[in-house]
Design a protein around this nucleic acid. Structure first.
Lengths: 227, 227
DNA sequence: AAAATAATTTAGACAAATCTAAAAAATTGT
DNA sequence: ACAATTTTTTAGATTTGTCTAAATTATTTT
């Protein structure tokens, strides 16, 4: 990605990340209260920190006007997100954590400071493009693809994505997934679609299976635009 | 190992570790100044922290009398050492860092709080007994073997240890090691010794080679007592 | 557009971890 | 043994990140 030529405290990094995530959804400028809520802290603490981040040119801040990341701040945020998501891949792929257990630990690991570490981790993991939640991993230079969540039934052949949710959470359906060794966080690839009945052949972690149109319209994949 | 039923700050952990390492070499009780020097801080700061650690029953501290770890403190120290050394193994074995690049990063990683993480990391690494410097890794319950440093020529057949140093650092010798793909941090095993000339067959990372008695008396292995 | 409400900032305090300078205790040298 | 030196502790200040309570600014309602 890039090296910050200045040191950031753990707390500063957390604020930058919070502002980044809030501006993803809310866009434009982020409110002091929103940051306070996201970080489980008080608005007055947020104000103090915004001044500090502004002094470091990481955010654009004017009193009472909300805040946004500067280009520099955005790069810091993307570095942290990159680290967080790479560590999540590590935890799931290499240490066999499940999809939903990794967040807390990744929150700690994302603050480890070493560019070489992240480069080598990235290589070790085979340069993954998405984390176990299907969210895209920013590249070293701070660019990354947006991802979208779609049903398998809506996707063209050759699409590849991470299984991130189900429409129908009936016991029967979940049992089907379990029997076929599909779980959240798995990467699935669409190999072939039968025009006749809409059934789909997919590549799972453990092999190739064929699923009915009904199943395909119940499984969400998070996919990164291949363009 | 065990869970601490209380939270430790990063700084507290660093002090506990420093006291542990100092009492390894100096033994008995550790001096305030020694801790200050080890940690690149001032004696007055050390005094403050010792009071705090004493309140938490992690050290035995009486004014002007030096300090030692309590049983509880020793367990905390061993947990940290265990984490540090497991991460070092990870960095060298999995991420291809070299032996001498890992310390700084491991100093950060050792503070990550998650018992599950360490258990899974340990399993992922194949339950290593020593780190890349040949130092033994404490087990989960806080026991561990002492290790000793010996020349290959002094060791019996079947000994296994980590290459940790050379007697003769001439260019010719180092070139020999390089050619035979032996580097510091590698685990070597003594397979056979020829009585006639003292030459030794050893298992290296990449294969089996035979080395002369002269070479064998120039290479130090750190070995954990197999008893 | 004024009043009421909500959001944000300021002021002042606090805890953790550090520092400097000075005081107190322990150790050493003769 | 006692003066000199070294080690350790205390006292008071500083920095970072936080808090509460009060003041200020912005927004909404009527």
């Amino acid at each position: 990605m890039f090296l910050y030529y200045f040191s950031m405290t753990l707390s500063e990094e957390d604020y930058i990340k919070a502002i980044y995530h809030l501006s993803e959804t809310e866009n434009v400028s982020v409110a002091t209260n929103a940051i306070a809520e996201q970080m489980s802290t008080k608005p007055s603490s947020v104000t103090d920190m915004l001044k500090k981040l502004s002094d470091k040119s990481l955010v654009n801040y004017k009193k009472y006007q909300g805040v946004s990341l500067t280009e520099k701040g955005r790069l810091v945020a993307l570095t942290i997100v990159r680290k967080h998501r790479l560590w999540e891949v590590f935890l799931v792929d290499k240490l066999n954590f499940s999809w939903d257990e990794v967040h807390e630990v990744a929150e700690q690991l994302e603050h480890i400071k070493s560019e070489a570490l992240i480069d080598k981790l990235d290589a070790h993991l085979g340069y993954p493009k998405v984390d176990p939640h299907g969210d895209p991993i920013p590249t070293k230079d701070g660019t990354f693809k947006k991802s979208v969540k779609k049903l398998i039934s809506e996707l063209p052949v050759c699409s590849e994505g991470v299984c991130v949710g189900v429409n129908d959470s009936s016991v029967a359906f979940l049992k089907f997934l379990d029997k076929n060794k599909i779980s959240l966080g798995n990467t699935l690839k669409i190999l072939e679609r039968e025009e006749f009945d809409g059934s789909v052949t997919i590549q799972t972690r453990t092999g190739t299976i064929r699923i009915s149109e009904q199943i395909a319209s119940n499984l969400f994949l998070e996919i990164v635009d291949a363009v």
